[in-house]
Design a protein around this nucleic acid. Structure first.
Lengths: 347, 347
DNA sequence: TTGAAAGCGCTACCAG
DNA sequence: CTGGTAGCGCTTTCAA
């Protein structure tokens, strides 16, 4: 299968430039440029000839030169906290699919902290000329940044949260969470733990409070008190939640159910339960949010959000924004999916 | 949380150009360029002044212009079959981490088929001037492409398979697979099904045959016959493997164990077993390859490969290649991890 | 150590 | 409908 061919010459085979095409087609470079980009004012015959020659020579405009001259980059920058995470990978997948079809390049950036966030914004601002627009996934902006971005005329679409001035795609986080908790309450649970996402003040201060609000709202609606003692936060990974979950569950008055802000966190809670010899759902009911790929096999009850769809929709809004379309906010629906991780409270 | 500020002027705030910096610092643009890029032949005092002014003006070189003039792009293209898949997301995560640190941009492309593969190669060839180098993850090349890439002086590193002429990072697929199957055999299993990855002739014709070879080798070493009747292939998703798995398992002489070429495929087999009312591991042992994030919770026995590490190593080799380093092949070790999805064959 | 000027390869304007 | 040509904003000789 592999191929051998001892790298003899690192000589980069010279590539045809627009001038070569012009020469070969017997027209000017201006005409080649117009013909290839499908601009008007080119005779059909001429266009065909140019296209044929270009194909023959495998001509491809130098993107850097085209950008410099035209100003547009045909590139979209996408920023996510961590590209290796299930949720973000799915979103990026959805974006990529649309962008590939539209002929845009996708520049992917990890945004682990506030410094990278501001760097991302600056680099990808219209003046930066690196991309035509950008998408920020679950990366909240502080007001100054948002204001500056708007002032800069930044073409930005956000997913996970919403800013006036930019298109966005979100879910109704409060409702999603309260729906999950209501389900638990309807099963007779009265002590319901919360496994929350850490609200690093610089990065993720939008989604967690909303989901927490849903948790509170469901309690309130049922006339139940919440116990801050069984409310914890962890990084939204399975491992971190497992560790934190262990301390929440390792107590005589442990909750009989836990609402986790994401499926991965729910997995962590299940692992914690397992570590302590507790059975799900007999000893502990668990519900998450996402409908992760493995949630069915694991039997996790969850509130489903179409993550891939989130990304695809974001890409669509972005393309609209590039075309000069209006700002739109899209809210993707969610759905409670019942599986085997939740059961009536044991009397 | 959101910010309002009715987008008054889409006016892109003019950004400082190199000339502005030169003016403000009282030097020429050439000096600014040298100073900022840390080139020699700039007086310390001058450099400091320029840097100060540049920071003040938030100057940032226009990447397109810099590319056009210098030829180098500070960009790396990464091609994966499907960016939304667990394995690829992890690899990309590892790459991204290293690249971010090295100050390179990452251009992500999905390569769903052979046409996109050849497009990727052409666009990202040195002559294309879109990137300085590229990484191809589990995308095999046909000989002509590989030869052309070498001839073009393509700076490429591959992960998952190996071509002479390019750096690569792989695992020993044959050994990984045979280790998994040996484990099954050691538990007394004699009829071991194979859930293989589909070998689309254009895309993925390297890894699956090697893992299959490991499967065969383990049988052979134990003096066992394989039964082609319990050898299937499916897309390497959980869902596809579930469907195919059902037909493999829905038979009186079904295997007592299955080796799946990836953990996600193993999950599919477990789902299939569940669909048919079979218990794992009592009625069926299952082993996979990867050590997926959810494999511990699911209790899947598997052959672990450090997927993030695969990506990080690829990025390192790439950076070396850009610096003009030598071609290297790295083989990342694997490890059998015993969990609860495998058990001795029931007599 | 510095500056002037010639491109990098293309697009866009304007004249024909 | 077509061609000439002036840049796009930077890097990189080459001279000073």
């Amino acid at each position: 299968m592999p191929v051998d061919e001892s790298r003899s010459e690192p000589a980069v085979r010279a590539r045809a430039g627009i001038e070569d095409v012009a020469l070969a087609a017997g027209v000017s470079v201006a005409t080649v440029s117009r013909a290839i980009r499908g601009l008007p004012n080119v005779a059909v015959a001429t266009r065909e000839r140019v296209l044929a020659v270009a194909a023959e020579l495998r001509y491809q405009a130098d993107p850097a030169a085209a950008r410099l001259a035209a100003g547009s980059t045909r590139t979209v920058a996408v920023g996510v906290p961590d590209p290796a995470t299930w949720f973000f990978a799915k979103v990026v997948g959805g974006i990529e699919r649309k962008l590939l079809a539209a002929g845009y390049d996708l520049l992917l950036s990890g945004i682990p902290d506030a410094a990278h966030r501001s760097r991302f914004l600056y680099m990808n601002a219209p003046g930066g000329r690196r991309c035509d627009a950008s998408i920020l996934v679950n990366v909240a902006l502080v007001p100054e940044e948002a204001g500056e971005a708007v002032a800069d005329g930044h073409r930005l679409v956000t997913v996970g949260f919403r800013y006036e001035g930019f298109s966005s795609v979100t879910i109704d986080n409060v409702t999603a969470a309260s729906r999950a908790v209501e389900h638990l309450i309807s099963l007779g649970h009265r002590r319901i733990g919360l496994m929350g996402m850490v609200m690093d003040n610089a990065m993720n201060f939008v989604v967690p409070p909303m989901r927490r609000q849903g948790y509170l709202r469901a309690h309130e609606a049922a006339g139940l008190q919440v116990d801050p003692g069984i409310e914890s936060v962890a990084n939204s990974t399975s491992d971190a939640s497992r560790v934190i979950g262990r301390t929440m569950l390792d107590s005589p008055d442990r909750p009989s159910a836990v609402f986790a802000m994401s499926d991965e966190q729910a997995f962590g809670v299940m692992l914690a339960a397992q570590d302590l010899g507790l059975n799900v759902p007999e000893d502990l009911s668990v519900v998450g949010v996402d409908d992760h790929d493995q949630s069915e096999l694991i039997g996790l009850t969850t509130v489903r959000q179409g993550v891939d769809e989130l990304g695809a929709m974001a890409a669509e809004l972005l393309l609209e924004a590039i075309e000069g379309g209006t700002v739109r906010h899209v809210e993707v629906p969610t759905e409670l999916i019942l599986r085997s991780s939740t059961a009536p409270r044991r009397s």
